[in-house]
Simulated scan of single mutants.
Amino acid sequence: MRRRIKPIVVYLFFFLVIGGLIFSDHQHHRQVVSQAEKTEKTTQTSETEKNKVVEERIVSMTLEEKVGQLFWARVPSSHQLEDLQSYHFGGYLLFGRDFQEQTLEDMKALTDRYQAASKIPLLIGSDEEGGTVTRISSILETPFQSPLELYQKGGMEAIRSDTRQKAELLKSVGINAGLFPVADIASNPSAFIYDRTIGQDAQTTASYVGQVVTELQKNKVGSTLKHFPGYGDNGDSHTAIIQDNRSLYELRQADFLPFQAGIDAGADSVLVSHNILTKIDTVPSSISPKINEILRKELNFKGVIMTDDLDMAGLADFVNQDEAAFQVILAGNDLILGSSYQTQIPYLLKKVSSGELTEERIDESVRRILSWKYDLGILGTSQ
């Protein structure tokens, strides 16, 4: 004779099972929430420490040191160490000539000397895009390939692997910023910028930019998105003033997407071109408050904004070098790239004395520059 299971036993069994599942799910939820809270707390603590370090440094700096931080200077052909100490640069940029007849060991010793000579740790950068723009290739057996070539041969995995190799190499010689990726889109293979792009549409370029930024972050090498607001199929601003007649709507539909992807991935800096966007402003983008506002407010970029090289004809033929430096800062940018610092720095100091440029405005940029240095692990800790 079969025994019948009493209904109350069945109900009790299901109650225990369901209760156990609910309890288990609740415990898992608590663990997830707890981990998220710990992560948020760690992030807040890190930000608090960074802000403390940066503010302590700013308070201790002279006006001359602050203005010097706004300059990422080409390494001069002579008096490199003396100029570091006299002008208090934010950083040094290495070009092809700086690598000629040097070994990797030589370059590491050189960047170490630069850092030792500078009171404030330096951004040391070099354009290492690959392909037609690479600086360190003169001392490598095999130069870095362009993103376009890499993507055609091996897709995004080849891009990621290449980025890791670049980051490791740059760090090994004391270079903490690579001035890439190129976030431009060009549809015409004969366009000036095409060979430096990945050669794909906006969505693929956006994916490329985001992944490069992520890999650089992992290796604590500074990233720079360039050339905002996007070169398109326009001419070369190294040699002429370039006028771009595209509308803001057109830029939003395509050219802004890779920059937004890089910003969302945590890009450290954005380099602004000298191209004149005629539908937006009448001046080169590098001295345009309107372009700066788009980058800050529409794309929500909070990091360092730098100019393309001020010696390029796209700006130099539009305004003289000293006034250009002043207009760059007035527009809201942070870092000035170029080699005319010997007259530009005194010019900015005069603008402060005359009241045309405030120390508070300079502090805004210095704060962003020092925050970048902290993120790269070169600024140090609070006292």
Rank of each mutant, 00 (worst) to 15 (best):
M107V: 08
V33Q: 14
G262M: 14
K38A: 11
N51K: 13
A240T: 13
D375H: 14
M1A: 12
M61Q: 01
F228L: 03
E55Q: 14
L315Y: 03
H274M: 05
L21M: 11
Y374F: 12
T163D: 02
R135H: 10
L248V: 14
S371N: 15
L12C: 10
F259M: 09
V133R: 13
I136P: 03
E49D: 10
D236Q: 11
Q253M: 13
L148T: 01
H29P: 00
A167C: 12
F180M: 12
K41A: 12
K279N: 12
L179M: 06
D162S: 09
T224H: 00
G90F: 15
L123P: 05
A324S: 15
I22M: 13
L63C: 01
Y92N: 08
D236M: 07
S161F: 07
Q342C: 02
L179P: 02
I291D: 01
V283R: 06
S118D: 01
Q152E: 15
H227R: 11
W372I: 12
I198K: 06
D127S: 09
E356T: 00
T197I: 09
A202D: 07
T62L: 09
V209P: 14
A109S: 15
D201Q: 05
L110Y: 09
L94W: 09
P289M: 06
I276W: 01
G355S: 05
R2D: 13
Q342N: 03
G19K: 06
V67T: 01
V54G: 10
S138M: 04
I159K: 08
V32Q: 15
G130W: 02
P7T: 15
R113Q: 10
Q211P: 15
I198M: 06
G262Q: 08
T62D: 05
N320H: 14
A191E: 02
G154E: 04
T43H: 13
D162K: 10
Q102V: 05
Q217P: 11
I175N: 13
Y11F: 15
D264S: 07
T214V: 03
S172P: 02
